[in-house]
Design a protein around this nucleic acid. Sequence first.
DNA 1: TCAAAAGTGTTATGAGTACACCCATGG
DNA 2: CCATGGGTGTACTCATAACACTTTTGA
Lengths: 233, 233
Amino acid sequence: MTQYQNQTRMLAAVDCIIFGFDGESLKILLVHRGIEPEKGKWSLMGGFVQPGESPDHAAIRILKTLTGLEGVYLEQLYTFGEPERDPIERTMSIAYFALIDIHRYEKQLSDEYQPEWFPLNKIPRLIFDHNEMVKMARAKLQYKAALHPLLFELLPKKFTLPQLQSLYESVYGTSFDKRNFSRKVLSTNLLVKQEDKYKGGSKKGAYYYKLNAKKYKANFQAFLNIIPNAHLL
Amino acid sequence: MTQYQNQTRMLAAVDCIIFGFDGESLKILLVHRGIEPEKGKWSLMGGFVQPGESPDHAAIRILKTLTGLEGVYLEQLYTFGEPERDPIERTMSIAYFALIDIHRYEKQLSDEYQPEWFPLNKIPRLIFDHNEMVKMARAKLQYKAALHPLLFELLPKKFTLPQLQSLYESVYGTSFDKRNFSRKVLSTNLLVKQEDKYKGGSKKGAYYYKLNAKKYKANFQAFLNIIPNAHLL
DNA sequence: TCAAAAGTGTTATGAGTACACCCATGG
DNA sequence: CCATGGGTGTACTCATAACACTTTTGA
């Protein structure tokens, strides 16, 4: 026996919701779709899963193609499989979300797709069910970042507390008390204060911090409570 | 254009991790696989996604076939797509986990598969990557039940606080202080005390409770904190 | 009357939250 | 010297967690 009989084969695609933070707002990276149908319309970056390739590998490959980045945070989000979601042919899409340091992103790599960053409140109409994917990715990011130290993946290796707070405020669309915020963040002992300061944001300058990589990996599963009133989300 | 060219089509399956609680321990329902390869070996209940059917619908259909139950709690868990996971032919499996009231389960429906309930610490060797699926389902159940009022789905409509506590203790493999447990559970206002008692567990009898269905639906997203020290999980 | 499970209250500790002033510096 | 953003401490409230005795009733 070499095959299962009388079953339907279908395509498997991967689509990536790529988050970045530029210091102002949380953004996602969209591309112009390269193939028909809907060629040229705004779309998530995606591609078909290849023979011999797992969905995880496909997501890593696609991310590398578009951004030039490897080793970034990548997590399977959800599999979208409505029969008519792609009008051409039945296609399952396994959606992944990625968190990248936007400053490491290499625009020149991906001229083919004319990618652009869009703030989350200005996402255009996307093809197929991609808007739904974005919505779900955002909800999951909010959910997960309230419990785990996830958002560091969006920042450079050295960052300041005001930058970190501004990132959390972007993700949750509110503002936090900076005294409580810094106390909570520092109480995790995940951050190591550096000697030098970032002077771009103010005259006084703000101390840089780095992640304590060991504790970060060990404590990733630990529940945090950075977000006040997370139960009201 | 009616097809995408030069791409690999593959099979899409759904596998269900079905949890039940019999008052003693948390169990999952396994079947004897009905087709080659590995026919007769222990397996999760599953099947191929049919044309015109979404993965969600496939999961609902499969669950109905095996248990006779409809309207049960069902959630997409993860998509497993390693190229060699099924030796016969490339198959993506979209895993779902289900929570059912084990007493509503109708054994006679499913003689074909000779299903059996296995406690989680006695899961046999399963086909393909199904052991990994079970492990992930269990972790997700623990994770999610610490934050959301999920485990009620495993109990009958009327249940007692000792039953509920025993369920939580099974899921987390520890014991809780019953005073703190009942205070926390009741403080959610999700439970409505009934007039009658369940006399099976003791001479004194324990009051039945029912879920307040409205609040349950409205508050499902609300974070609970039933599990002491959930951050240490 | 006794064994076995159900039910209930208090206290101490720690976490969360609200809130306001001083500091450093470049212009 | 002053405007701007960075950095810090305190007090109150509430949730958590530890802990033990009384109640009920069938056998």
